[in-house]
Simulated scan of single mutants.
Amino acid sequence: MILLNPYVYANRNGILRLEANSVNVGTTNVTFTFTPHNFLNKAYSGLILFKLPGFTAPSTAVPIVFSTNGKN
C-alpha cells in the first residue's frame, strides 16, 4: 500500500487568482459575482486569491456570498 501526501498537488500550476466582476449589497447579504469558469467545478487543493471590488458595508452584519457558475 502506497500512501500519498495530499499536499503534493497543492498549487501545482501556480496560485489561482479570481477577480469579482461585481458586488451587490443587500439587506440580507453581500454577493460578489465572478465570471463562470469550467475549472471551478473541479476538485482543487491549494491557495486561491480573490480580488474584490470595494463596497460600502450595510449598517448591520450580513453574510458575504461568492456566486459563480449558478452556485453560491
Rank of each mutant, 00 (worst) to 15 (best):
F55E: 03
M1D: 01
N21Q: 13
G70H: 05
S45P: 03
P63V: 05
F32M: 09
L16G: 06
R17F: 06
S67W: 11
V62M: 00
T68L: 07
V30K: 13
A20I: 10
T68K: 08
P58K: 07
E19L: 04
V23G: 01
A10N: 11
F32D: 03
A61P: 04
G26W: 12
P63K: 14
G26T: 15
I64N: 00
A43S: 11
N24F: 07
G70L: 03
L4I: 11
N41F: 06
P63H: 04
P6F: 02
L3D: 06
N21S: 11
A57I: 11
T35Q: 10
K42H: 15
A61Q: 11
V65Q: 05
G14E: 01
H37P: 03
V30G: 05
T35M: 05
G26K: 14
Y9K: 15
A57P: 09
N69Y: 03
G54Q: 10
G70R: 11
A43R: 15
S67R: 15
L16H: 11
N41Q: 11
Y44F: 15
V65M: 05
N5I: 09
V25D: 00
V8W: 06
T28Q: 13
T33E: 00
T68A: 12
I2P: 07
P36Q: 05
V62Y: 00
I48H: 02
L3G: 04
H37D: 12
F55M: 08
V23W: 03
A61R: 14
T35C: 01
F55A: 04
K71C: 06
Y7L: 13
L49Y: 13
A43E: 10
K51I: 07
T31M: 06
P36Y: 04
R12W: 05
K71M: 09
A43Q: 12
G54P: 00
A43I: 08
F34L: 03
S22G: 04
G70P: 00
Y9A: 13
N24A: 10
P6W: 01
L3F: 07
L3I: 09
V23K: 06
K51E: 06
A10P: 04
G54R: 12
E19C: 07
S45I: 15
N72L: 13
T35K: 14
S22H: 06
H37Y: 11
V25W: 00
A61L: 12
F34M: 02
S45T: 15
N11E: 03
L3H: 08
N29W: 13
G14H: 07
Y9M: 14
Y44D: 02
P53T: 08
N21F: 02
V65C: 03
F55N: 05
A61F: 07
V65L: 03
L4E: 04
E19R: 14
F55C: 04
L3R: 12
T31A: 07
N29F: 14
T28E: 10
G26N: 13
V23R: 07
H37W: 10
F34A: 01
V8T: 09
A20Y: 02
P53D: 01
V30R: 13
F39P: 05
N29A: 15
P53G: 02
I15M: 11
Y7P: 02
P6H: 03
L47M: 14
T60I: 08
K51P: 00
N5S: 08
N13T: 14
T68M: 08
Y44Q: 08
S22L: 03
G54W: 04
F39I: 14
F50S: 09
L47I: 15
K42A: 14
N38R: 07
